[in-house]
Computed example of a mutant assay.
Amino acid sequence: MPDRSDHRGPAIEMTGVTKRFGATEALRGLDLTVPAGTVCGLLGPNGAGKTTAVRVLATLVAPDRGTARVAGHDVARECEAVRRAIGLAGQHAAVDEGITGRDNLRLFGRLHHLGGRRARARADELLERFGLADAGDRLVRTYSGGMRRRLDLIASLVTSPPVLFLDEPTTGLDPRSRQEIWDTVKESADDGTTVLLTTQYLEEADRLADDIVVVDHGAAIATGPPARLKAQIGSRVSVTLADAAQLGHAAVVLSRLSGGDAQVDVAERLVTVVTPPGAEVLLPSLVRELDAQGVVAQDVAVRAPSLDDVFLALTATRTADLRSAA
């Protein structure tokens, strides 16, 4: 099994990594640093380059330019050392449905040269620890989707890798199964495993990640802890009206006072805007102005931004910048 003490620097490093597939530039000088023992959430829209980044780090594709290191090993020159240091669980479970869960884990252990006795012991340990012991001797084809995904994830832990790559591990799962995967990831991180998690579920990143890297059009456009990224965006001010016919008036008032672009939801009779930090000071002026305009507000509220707000604000800005540069 890999020695977690071998490398004392960042567990994952990418510097200026570029990768092109034909006319498509999947990565455009991507920079990424993940300290050892942390969980990093890699966020981005479809086609942003998240999966390509994981494939480069896992030595599945070679970068065209730039450098990448995992557990201190260069992904281009030390492929075998990188592969010994990582576990990988993709978007689709890679376990064999025709054998039992226990036999799947034993097979993974044997493929990684653990030897028969150690592979059996490790399979039993993982099934017990991650709540699949009762199902361990059932054929995997009888498992639910969430159970298969969880088995796939713990199969990637058979060798106790210091670095674990999870590429959208909860896509398509129901809330209960997603929570089970989250619990498994948390336990792995608590053991000191460095986790790079790609996801489109912003709540997932918020719950699991120590740091987040937002990727768009193949480049990192924001990096930091979830709380700091949300603080940079500001707050969300919302006004719920009694009469949907007054939404236009309320949007004008809210935009003028906040300096932001107010969004209207006719069905909910709701006007919202994302404002800079300190939006609370707007509320008295907003209430007075709405009253002066004869707009009847049922509710006026300020809430902290979510990662959804961060994601939408950052990717919208990036898209606008790329269009203006074209």
Rank of each mutant, 00 (worst) to 15 (best):
R4P: 12
S5Y: 02
G9V: 06
G9R: 03
I12N: 08
G22K: 14
A23D: 04
L30M: 09
V34P: 10
P35Y: 05
P35S: 06
G37H: 13
V39Y: 00
G44Q: 12
K50Q: 13
K50I: 00
T52V: 13
V56I: 10
A58E: 10
T59C: 03
T59M: 12
P63V: 07
G66A: 04
V70H: 05
G72N: 00
H73N: 03
D74W: 13
V75D: 08
E80S: 09
A85H: 11
A85C: 15
A89M: 09
A94Y: 11
A94S: 09
G98N: 12
F108S: 12
R110K: 13
R110E: 14
L111K: 10
R118M: 09
R122G: 10
E128V: 01
A133S: 03
L139T: 04
V140G: 13
V140N: 05
R141C: 09
S144F: 15
S144R: 14
R150H: 01
L151A: 06
S156T: 03
S156M: 05
S160L: 10
P162Y: 12
P162D: 03
L164H: 07
L166E: 04
T171A: 15
G172I: 01
D174C: 02
S177T: 00
I181N: 02
E187M: 14
D190G: 11
T193N: 06
V195S: 03
V195D: 07
T199G: 01
Q200F: 14
L202K: 02
L202C: 04
E204H: 09
D206F: 11
G218M: 07
G224A: 08
P225Q: 12
P226W: 03
R228Q: 13
L229N: 05
I233T: 08
V237W: 11
D243H: 01
V252Q: 04
V253E: 04
S255K: 10
R256F: 00
S258V: 02
A262H: 01
Q263T: 03
V266T: 05
L270Y: 14
V273D: 05
V273S: 00
V274G: 06
P277S: 03
L282Q: 04
L283H: 00
L283T: 12
P284D: 04
E289S: 08
D291V: 14
A292Q: 03
A292P: 00
V296E: 08
A297S: 07
R303L: 07
S306Q: 03
D309F: 01
V310I: 02
F311N: 05
F311M: 01
L314A: 02
A316M: 03
T317L: 06
R318K: 15
A320I: 02
R323C: 02
S324C: 03
A325C: 08
